[in-house]
């Protein structure tokens, strides 16, 4: 599974409230029309120039600065194997803000699983939540996975993160056939 699993998106997120236009994949494309502070946005592949804004957004959401981690993640997921690694950002229409991002990749045969798409990072600016940004990001990476030939998308969520789980469930995701186990090492 994803080597850098994480989930952000963890403060004040609720189910998105508007439906945005469908798109097959990014670089994108459709404009949101919800009455958000930043009403219009588009979703596209992350670029080098986005890194500082992504780090700032993650810092705002999680409260933890991790520049080196993000630089490494960006290098691996935004610049390599674009057919199976996906790093999308939602950018405001005026191109001044990054409103959210989603990261995932196709992994095969781990845990006995056929190839599937793993979403291991998703975050939306708290100021624009409930306006379809997360939904649009998930639609985009879903389309990218589908276009890459896989038919299943998975993620991993903390039991305690009911809001993030609500978001994924609102997008049609259900419990899968795997159960995560762990132990403390002596």
């Amino acid at each position: 599974m994803a080597s850098a699993a994480f989930s952000v998106f963890d403060r004040g997120q609720a189910a998105p409230s508007d439906a945005l236009g469908k798109s097959r994949d990014g670089p994108v494309v459709s404009q949101a029309t919800a009455p958000a502070r930043s009403a219009a946005f588009h979703v596209r592949r992350a670029e080098d120039a986005d890194l500082a804004k992504v780090i700032a957004l993650d810092m705002e959401v999680t409260g933890v600065a991790k520049d080196a981690y993000w630089a490494d993640l960006h290098e691996r997921y935004a610049t390599r194997r674009p057919g199976e690694r996906f790093f999308f950002v939602a950018e405001s229409a005026d191109k001044r803000q990054i409103l959210g991002f989603v990261i995932g990749e196709i992994r095969a045969w781990e845990f006995g699983s056929e190839p599937c798409g793993w979403v291991f990072g998703v975050s939306v600016d708290p100021e624009v939540r409930e306006h379809g940004v997360g939904e649009r990001l998930l639609e985009t990476i879903s389309a990218a996975f589908r276009d890459a030939g896989v038919g299943k998308m998975r993620t991993l969520i903390s039991h305690g993160n009911h809001l993030l789980m609500s978001f994924f469930r609102s997008q049609g995701m259900m419990a899968g056939p795997y159960l995560q186990l762990e132990r403390d090492l002596p």
């Binding site: 189910a15 039991h159 009911h162 609500s166 609102s170």
Partner: peptide, 22 residues
């Protein structure tokens, strides 16, 4: 119990209506 609570706490009325439609 943890899984039960997490599941019931994350399924909204809106999500259930979508599931029914599906």
């Amino acid at each position: 119990d943890d899984i039960t609570r997490a599941t019931l706490s994350s399924v909204t009325v809106s999500t259930l209506l979508k599931l029914i439609d599906r």
